[in-house]
């Protein structure tokens, strides 16, 4: 691991100042400086030599109380950026208003990791593509232009949606699927002030520049995640399918929230995990359901729509049928929820 300077600012503006002052007006890069919260993603990648920041800015001593609070008001759940996954997953009111949010956290990682990991860090976690994790392989995301070892290599865990010729790495997070389904908005503070980013705009498709993963600048810190909810988001759930029962990333997952009028769908929110390069909102599937009676065949039609554009590679063909069936099962199970 490259030696680094360690900073422990005590408020947000000091944190932002630390990363802004660092490079004489030049926009800092991730090699200059990175924030660290739980460290469960960043420390891992620093040990692997994938991330090599010269300075780490620890967010854990920031004193603004809101960073550690979950506030529920006026149809919005506001999660402070430093709230730990475990705490959010266990909160009774979150579970009640929006089971999807709690479940997407509960089924992620392990209890220990959830005690460490912050919600902001969670949504910003980087892919677990094996070739990305090991610095001896060519990887366009890690070293732009070096090639993609996964494309013709082992790609069972890779994405079938949102891929490009440069990169097919899956976005592995779970919580982000719930957030994108529910139209969350992220509060950000940086050297140019504060702004809000729609969650759907936070992550960037790989395209020709898989190294650019988010819309955040290196000096921007996430301060909160706002999730609108309503009465109907009680009918929501997160279904995660994996090779083993726990402590594993999704092979496919579905985040579903349904606004039902009897048997008929008024509005559906659907996001898909484990199958796409970024948090993935399945709008075509949602549209296919609106106004329909939600039965097996309507669910299957929606699932077909969700995967119409899928581009599987050699070892991940199974993700297309699996992704579809995961969505069908999630839709039926959500429909049948007693709320």
């Amino acid at each position: 691991m490259r030696p680094f300077v360690f900073e422990r600012p005590t408020n947000i503006s000091a944190a932002v100042a630390l990363v802004s002052s660092f490079a004489d007006g030049r926009a800092p890069t991730q090699a200059d400086v990175q924030f660290i919260a739980g460290g469960t993603n960043l420390a891992d990648y620093m040990k692997l030599g994938v991330a090599r920041p010269r300075r780490l800015v620890d967010l854990n001593d920031l004193s603004e109380p809101a960073l550690r609070q979950i506030r529920i008001s006026d149809g919005t759940i506001r999660f402070g950026a430093l709230v730990r996954m475990g705490e959010a997953a266990d909160r009774g009111d979150v579970k009640r208003h929006c089971p999807l949010l709690a479940e997407s956290l509960k089924f992620a990682a392990s209890a220990q990791i959830r005690n460490m990991a912050s919600l902001a860090g969670n949504v910003l976690q980087r892919t677990r593509c094996e070739y990305f994790r090991e610095t001896s392989w060519p990887c366009n995301k890690r070293v732009p232009g070096s090639g993609c070892a996964a494309m013709e290599g082992l790609n069972r865990q890779h994405a079938v949606l949102g891929t490009s010729d440069a990169c097919i790495a899956t976005y592995h997070g779970d919580f982000a699927q719930a957030l994108i389904a529910l139209d969350a908005v992220v509060d950000v503070e940086g050297r140019h002030g504060t702004r809000q980013i729609r969650f759907a705009k936070l992550h960037q498709l790989p395209g020709d520049t898989p190294d650019v993963e988010t819309d955040l600048a290196a000096d921007e810190v996430i301060t909160a995640i706002n999730v609108p909810f309503s009465e109907w988001s009680r009918r929501s759930r997160y279904l995660k399918i994996r090779d083993r029962e726990s402590y594993a990333f999704a092979l496919a997952s579905a985040a579903v929230a349904l606004d039902m009028d009897g048997d008929t769908v008024r509005q559906a929110r659907i996001a898909l995990g484990g199958v796409a390069t970024v948090p993935w909102r399945a709008r075509l599937a949602e549209e296919a359901l609106v106004g329909k009676r939600l039965d097996q065949s309507a669910a299957e039609t929606a699932a077909d729509a969700a995967f119409a554009e899928a581009k599987p590679r050699r070892h991940n063909e199974f993700k297309v049928p699996l992704g579809k069936r995961t969505l069908v099962r999630a839709l039926i199970e959500t429909r049948d929820m007693k709320v």
């Binding site: 677990r128 094996e130 070739y131 994790r133 090991e134 070892a149 013709e152 290599g153 082992l154 865990q157 090779d243 083993r244 029962e245 726990s246 402590y247 594993a248 990333f249």
Partner: peptide, 22 residues
């Protein structure tokens, strides 16, 4: 990775063994 005769999943996240819940 058959092209390079290299192991790819050299860790406990990708080399899966049963966990308690299994």
């Amino acid at each position: 990775d058959q092209r390079h005769a290299r192991y790819v999943n050299r860790d406990l996240q990708d080399y899966l063994v049963p966990v308690n819940a299994d």
